[in-house]
């Protein structure tokens, strides 16, 4: 599963591209799947339930999104027994880290919360760390 796809969920096309570019720039071999809101991503995750597809390696998710925002997506995942068992690392990547958002996110036990730094170098560093961390991390479904 460590080579499973990385899900990038962001309504901003520039951001999806930037994140993808950065991940490619640090030679992430995993397949990158992009979604423009929570609902699209949830639909994808629900289809996994059959079990034929490879288990995703990591979810990078924005908060402010139309249709279904990042917090709602996490809530939906937590309500699915199968998705909980899959335990896909879920990391928020957002422009504004308000107190309320932070509190809610951690209440739903996410695996990370980062602000999108305008400096590419800093953002690259953040993503590199997250990736490395989860690559090294032991996982029940391995």
């Amino acid at each position: 599963m460590k080579n499973g796809p990385i899900l990038i969920i962001d309504d901003d096309e520039d951001d999806r591209e930037l994140i993808s570019e950065i991940l490619e720039s640090i030679s992430v071999p995993n397949k990158l799947l992009t979604f423009s809101n929570g609902k699209e991503a949830l639909t994808y995750l629900k289809e996994l339930e059959g079990g034929n597809e490879t288990q995703p390696f990591l979810i990078l998710c924005d908060i402010n999104m139309p249709v279904m925002n990042g917090l709602e997506l996490r809530r939906q995942i937590n309500e699915s027994k199968e998705l909980i068992e899959r335990s896909i690392p879920f990391v928020y990547l957002t422009t504004t880290a308000t107190k309320a958002n932070l509190a809610e996110a951690y209440e739903m036990s996410v695996q990370g919360f980062f602000e999108k730094d305008y400096r590419v170098q800093n953002l690259t560093q953040t993503l590199q760390r997250v990736y490395d961390y989860w690559q090294h991390c032991k996982h029940p479904n391995n």
Partner: peptide, 20 residues
Amino acid sequence: SHDLKEPVRKIRTFSDRLHT
């Protein structure tokens, strides 16, 4: 302020990219 932040951040991001 929320919505304004994103485009500003993007201006900065891309200026940074140009710069670097």
